[in-house]
Design a protein around this nucleic acid. Structure first.
Length: 298
DNA sequence: CATTGCTCCCCA
DNA sequence: TGGGGAGCA
């Protein structure tokens, strides 16, 4: 039973979604340090979404607006609509529906929150592969894709640190390592992920075209890895996490970075087993985890 | 009062 | 059915 390679799963996450909604409404906010805040009376209100320009100044979610202005004096503030004295998020929910509608053209969507959705792309990948016959995949179709673990530096000893050049070399190396799509009946797991990434590139382009909103995405073999992948390169980028990259990725990954292990659960695992990294966990057997839920990661 | 709001899950 | 805990944004 080759474990966990059979599906292609993606997570799409809108970049600072509430900010983008406000920026579409008021274009003067585009490309500026700005936040969305709720309530006004206490310390200027609390911040619930932050543009990347504002993040560069150290502004974070949950900060008071008055404190954020100290870090970023020309910060612009959009306010959440209030009705009956409560924050009213219907505005953002409606924008979320727009996004979901576009994404649903490509696959069945599982809405995870107002700005995140999972999708199982396994069937869509099989369909797409039938149409692809034996063509090679052109790297220009993976314009915003990162392959975790690539470029392998031993193959690329003199690589600079220009980030798009590195990204691009990684994709080229990865594509070169794939078996030819036409050989054999069923494709490798790696090829499936690549075709998944192709579909997600197209989906994200369609979302931006029809809604104006940008997003990031992760593509892997299960929801936990897709979620982790999505966070590796933001904003407006997507990341493939192949199973072979997981060992290295986990070797330095704090347990609380894994979805559902960010709270007491993760803390209790650390204490009970005396470990810090996901990599340290692999030496324990399934039996030790049986007490709790059964999400596997590979 | 000073995160807040939402969602999922479990249990009475 | 609703409250409370947990996790997340």
């Amino acid at each position: 039973m080759d474990y966990g390679k059979e599906r292609v799963v993606a997570l799409v996450d809108m970049d600072c979604f509430y900010v983008q909604v406000e920026q579409r409404l008021n274009p003067a906010l585009k490309n500026t340090p700005c936040v969305v805040a709720q309530y006004k009376t206490w310390k200027g209100g609390s911040i619930i979404a932050v543009s990347y320009e504002a993040r560069a100044h150290g502004v974070t979610r949950n900060m008071w607006v008055d404190d954020a202005k100290k870090l970023c004096p020309d910060l612009q503030v959009a306010r959440v609509r209030e009705s009956h004295g409560k924050a009213d998020l219907t505005h953002y929910r409606e924008a979320s529906v727009e996004v979901i509608e576009v994404m649903s053209r490509f696959a069945v969507i599982e809405r995870a929150s107002i700005d995140e959705a999972y999708m199982d792309l396994t069937a869509a990948v099989q369909e797409r592969r039938k149409k692809m016959t034996d063509q090679q995949i052109d790297p220009s179709l993976l314009r915003t894709t990162y392959i975790q673990g690539y470029p392998q530096s031993d193959l690329e000893p003199f690589m600079g640190d220009d980030s798009n050049q590195r990204r691009s070399r990684g994709v080229e190396q990865w594509l070169a390592s794939l078996p030819a799509p036409s050989t054999g009946g069923q494709s490798s797991a790696e090829l499936q992920l690549t075709v998944g990434a192709l579909i997600v590139e197209e989906m994200r382009a369609a979302v931006e075209k029809h809604t104006g909103f940008r997003c990031s995405a992760g593509i892997s073999h299960n929801k936990v890895l897709a979620k982790l992948a999505c966070g590796l390169n933001k904003p407006n980028r997507q990341t493939v996490v192949p199973l072979d990259s997981v060992t290295e990725l986990f070797s330095t990954l704090p347990i609380e970075k894994i979805r559902n292990l960010g709270g007491k659960m993760g803390a209790s695992i650390k204490e009970a087993l005396g470990v810090d990294n996901m990599g340290d966990l692999t030496q324990f057997s399934q039996a030790q985890l049986g007490q709790h839920f059964g999400e596997k990661t590979g």
